[in-house]
Each structure stands twice: as C-alpha cells, then as structure tokens.
Simulated scan of single mutants.
Amino acid sequence: MTAARLADAPSVQRAGVVPRQAWRLGALAENVTAQLIEEVPVALVYNGVSHAVMLASPSDLADFALGFSLSEGIIATPDELLDLEIVSAGEGIELRLTITARPFAGLKDRRRALTGRSGCGLCGVESLADAMRPLPRLDDRTPLSLEAIHRALDGLAPMQRLNRQAGAVHAAAWADPDGAIRHLAEDVGRHNAFDKVIGAMAGRRGGRPPGFAVLTSRLSYELVQKAATTGISALVAISAPTALAVEAADRAGICVVALARADAVTVYAHPARIANLAGVA
C-alpha cells in the first residue's frame, strides 16, 4: 500500500480523550470533570478473517494497521497491504485489511491450530516456538551519540498531547540520527504505540529514514522482536529492559539503551554502537 493510499485510508474519528465526572477528596470533597484516555477494542481483520483484537487508543489507526502487520511478520513489505478500511463495529473498531495472496496463505497456515488470542504482546501465536521465532540479525553499525539520545528524550514531552491531557498512555517516537523527533505516537499499549510509529515510518515515501526508536515504557521482549522483524537496530527506552529483551537484542544486533534519563543512560546491548563507547566489545 503506497504512502498516499495509507494516508487516504477511511478513518473513524475519535477524540482520544473523554470527560468523566469524578470526586477529588482532600481537605474538601470536590466534584470534578476528569479527562480520561480512551481504550477501545480494535479488531484486525485480514481478507475477511479476524486475526486479533487489541485494546488500543483510537488514533493513528492506519499507521497501527500497517505497523502491526509488518512487526508481527504478517506481511513483509508495505506493498503487500493492498487496501485498508477503518469502520465502527459495535463497541469497537474494525481494521479491515486486504493483503496479497502470499502473506494471506501464510497467515491461514499460522492460524489453523490456534486455540486463542492474546490481547497484547505476542498476538496470534499458538506455541512457544511461534512466540520465540528466530530473529533476523541486523548488521547496522552506525554510531549513536549520547547527544542525540538526550535531544530525543528532551523532545518527547512537548509532543505527548494525550499524556498531557489525561496521562495513562505510552509514547513511541522515531528520531533522526541527530536526535530530532520525526514522528511520535501515543497509545494505552506500549506495543501499539510502537506499531503506530513503525507503520507511519514504513508508509512514508522513500521508506523509513535513518535514526532510532525511543520508547517511554519498559523494554520487553516483544518490542525487541518487533524491532528486529522490521529492521530497527537501535532502541532507547526510559524504563528498564527485561533480561529476555536484552538477550534477544544481543543476538539480533540491536543496540539497547534504557533507564534513559537526563543525567545518565545505561547501555545493555551492543555498546560499541554508542560513539562515546567506541572500541568497547
């Protein structure tokens, strides 16, 4: 699906934040209007076959559809997504994707023995072998500077509109090699936010520009898996990684920087990619 067609995909307009009445209890009891982030069931339907239902924020859904399809290995390139329709369906939203015959045949094979689905993380898998599928090895050795990392971290908060309004959301962003934020997405699910960024960057004319991903969440295995599957070789996370995530990143050739703060960062995998640590094994 071309960048232009992705941008033109029919969209269900949702505010992302909704008002609700609440009571604030302090020295006095006060009735207030609270702003709450929306959380909506979003079904991904491929060629008429429902594959997964995610709880997600109802924004950037065209990017989410493409990013999820790429990062879960359902399609290999954006061109294998032929069409996308976004429609209201009961209490949720359906992302109706039309994909080419080759990936759809693979998806049907993958689904034949499915007994259930996960609402987040590793979706549409039926076994440990499927969940822990071999990851490609990425050979990108482009240096990543601490200055770029800190610039990207400083650029997150001003772009987190939903988080300022209501909190309760994660953000994922794509930064240029110099740390300038090119795109940011927010979602109640950290993996959903990352999929939205993957889709937005893949849908650009000319493909994803050089750079690295920045995440406001902890770095878990499925995020490394999504990065490796889509060729993202550097991840910066504000929170800590899991041991399995670091082991997977080490095997896949992904530089992992986490516990990223203004005063310090910790490099967990492939430290030689960090310009300040050049020569470190």
Rank of each mutant, 00 (worst) to 15 (best):
A262L: 06
W23V: 13
H150N: 06
K226F: 00
D195S: 12
T230W: 01
D250P: 01
P19A: 07
M54F: 13
A22Y: 10
A113D: 14
V246Y: 04
A264R: 14
L244S: 00
E38Y: 06
R164F: 14
G16I: 11
L277V: 10
P143Q: 09
A76Q: 14
G116K: 14
D187F: 00
G121N: 09
Q35R: 13
L184D: 06
R218M: 15
P134A: 05
A200G: 09
T2W: 05
A269Q: 05
A27W: 14
P143E: 09
A252P: 14
S233R: 04
A22F: 09
T216N: 03
C120M: 12
G279P: 10
R204G: 13
C120S: 01
A89E: 02
T142I: 04
G106T: 08
R261I: 13
S118Y: 11
S59P: 01
F68Q: 00
P78L: 08
A281M: 14
L122A: 11
L215C: 11
L184Q: 12
M159C: 13
V87E: 14
D79R: 15
R273K: 07
R190I: 02
A52N: 13
H183P: 01
A34V: 10
I181Q: 03
A243T: 15
L223V: 01
A113L: 04
F104I: 08
S59M: 09
Y46K: 04
A248F: 09
R96I: 01
D63L: 06
A76F: 00
A22M: 05
D109R: 10
L156Q: 02
R161D: 07
L162Q: 07
E186N: 11
D79V: 14
A15T: 15
Q225Y: 00
V17N: 05
M1D: 01
R24T: 08
A4W: 02
D263R: 10
V17C: 05
Q13K: 08
R251V: 06
S57D: 04
C120F: 05
A258I: 04
P103R: 15
H150K: 15
Q165I: 07
P210R: 11
V280K: 05
P241D: 11
L25V: 12
V32K: 11
V214R: 12
V267G: 04
L82W: 04
S88A: 13
S233D: 05
L162E: 07
V265Y: 03
D154T: 00
A4R: 10
L95N: 01
A171G: 13
P271R: 02
G279N: 05
Q35G: 03
R117T: 08
I75L: 08
K226G: 00
G167T: 00
F212R: 08
I238S: 09
E126Q: 14
D263Q: 14
A62S: 15
T266Y: 04
N163V: 06
A113H: 12
T216Y: 03
A171Y: 09
N276Q: 08
M132R: 07
T266K: 12
V246I: 15
W174T: 09
A27S: 15
F194E: 08
I149Y: 11
P10Y: 07
R251Q: 15
K108E: 00
A34T: 10
D63S: 04
H51M: 13
N163P: 13
L219C: 06
H51S: 14
R110P: 00
D140P: 12
Q35A: 15
E85G: 06
